[in-house]
Each structure stands twice: as structure tokens, then as C-alpha cells.
Simulated scan of single mutants.
Amino acid sequence: MSKSSAGHKMPRGSVPPYVLLVDNGSLQPAATRQLRKIAAALGRRLGKKVTPVSLLHSDQVPAKKLGGRKAEILRSAVEQRLHRGGREFVIVPLFFGRSRALTEFIPELINQWRLQEPKLKVRLAAPLAVGGDDQLARILETQVRAKLTPGFLRGQRARVALVDHGSPVKTVTQVRNRLATQLRRRLGPSVAGVAPCSMERRPGADYEFNEPLLETLLATSPWNTGPVIVAQLFLLPGRHAGPGGDIERICRQAREKSPGLRTVRTKLVGEDPALEAILTDRFLATK
């Protein structure tokens, strides 16, 4: 770029659509690093650049912990590109269900951006879990079957606890429950049972739909003895599902209380290459 053109916005219509892969955000560097890996893989699959951005938090991680490049936040990422002449965006959510991030937070941002630029075009893709699609259940099945080893089972059939973070939005919890049903059907008699549960929940009767908690389930017969596979319905590593995180702690404490209990955790959904196919489908469905 010449000195005379540096710093100026590009002419309208000259900037191709920006594709943004959006997660919730985390203060854990590992979460942003994994988000970047997924965005790069999706970009190779689509044949176009996919920019990883977060809704919140991630920009507080020091750049030195992220290879010298700070994480981007959705609001500033879009506004910077608007200033450079961008008018069209495709937002691909890295979310399992229609949380408030997708029903409230992002739509509110889009409305604000349209006040700045009336010609703005934003296509918001669907979340990962949509009705009638069993791709997520297939990923979970693969991860669970990888843990059905003779050394872990010791001649017994395992039970599977499908755990997510827990949500204040009932429809998000219903997504998890539907996935548990699909997973139970796919695993069939190879396991003794599949149960959905939450890592945590808000207090009060209004949020009882998150029950049971993983901690409670692992203390209840017959889940407190024998092999239990904890299928982690989490996308990115962090303080909950990463090494040394809350899920690991809950499982360790459950084993200490019930010596006959054995637990093993699956990989995160975001670590499975098959996730790229789902994200590709969600992107293509916006056209």
C-alpha cells in the first residue's frame, strides 16, 4: 500500500464478506489457542479466511501468552472492519444451542452496527445443535467408544454421564438432553446407561431443569460404583473442562468418596476434527 493510501478506508464494495467464528470468550489462553486452530481448519475447508473472535473476556489475556497476538472481541472486530470499508459479515457461532449470546447479545450488537452503517449485511449462522441433526451425537459416540477399553471396564459395562456447564436458558439444557437421548440410542447395549447432567446451576426452583449436577449423579447409586465415562459437552479448554479444571476436580472428589467408582473423561468436542463439518454446514446454510 502506498503512503498516500495508507490509513484510508477502502472503497465500498471492494471488501469481501468477513467470516467470523465466535465463541463466548475465556480468560484461559488455551481456549483462544484452540479457537484459532478451529478457525484455521474451517478456513482451509471453506477456502476463505475465517477470523476467530470472542464475545467477551479473551482480550484480557496478555498477547505474550497467545503467540504475541491478542485475541479479538466481536464488537471491536466488526467496528474496525466497518471502518476499513467492510459491509458484509457472516457470524458462525461456536455454541451448542441458542443461548442468550445468540438470541440477545449478538442481535443487539447488530442493531447498533446498523445505526452506524445502514447498508450493513450480517448473516448469523445457526448453533451447532439443530433439530434432526445427529452429527454432534456421532462425535460424542466416537469419543465415548475410545474410552471403552478393557483396562478401564474390567469386565463391567460403563455408564456415561453427559455433562455440560449448566445454563440459565431451558432450551439450551434441552439441547443437551436431546444429545443424551441420541447418544444413548447410538451406543445401545455397549453401555449400561447414559444420563445428562450439569457441572453447576444457579440457585432457585427456576433453574431446577439443570439437575442433576455431576457431583450429585456420581454420589447416587448405581453411578457411584464401577466405570463411568464423563462425556464432556464442552468446546474449548478452560477453568471448567481443561486440565485441572472443575470437571476433573468433581470426578476426583467423587472417587475419594466412593472408592469403587472409576471415572474417565472424554476429549472436548472442540478437539474433534469432525466439528469442522458441522461448522461448514452452518456456514453454507446462511447463503
Rank of each mutant, 00 (worst) to 15 (best):
E256Q: 12
C251P: 06
T225K: 15
V50D: 07
E72D: 13
G131R: 14
E248I: 00
G86K: 02
V264Y: 00
A63C: 05
F89W: 11
K9R: 15
V191N: 09
N24G: 11
G166K: 08
E208D: 04
G25F: 08
G204L: 04
C197T: 02
H57Q: 10
S190Q: 13
P227D: 06
R36T: 01
A254C: 10
P222K: 14
P259Q: 14
P118W: 04
P227Y: 04
K119T: 15
P93F: 06
G270D: 06
G151E: 12
F152D: 01
P203D: 11
L66N: 00
F96H: 04
L217W: 05
D164C: 13
P52N: 08
A126E: 15
T171K: 10
K65C: 01
L284C: 00
I106H: 09
Y18K: 09
L213Q: 11
L187R: 07
E79Y: 00
L27F: 07
G68F: 05
S76G: 06
V122P: 09
V61I: 15
V15E: 05
L46H: 12
E200N: 12
R114K: 15
A41Q: 14
L275K: 01
V15K: 13
A219L: 07
S14F: 03
R75Q: 08
K121W: 03
R123Y: 14
R84W: 13
S5W: 05
R249A: 09
L214P: 03
E104D: 11
L128A: 13
R249K: 15
T181N: 00
F89P: 14
L187H: 05
S14L: 02
R75C: 09
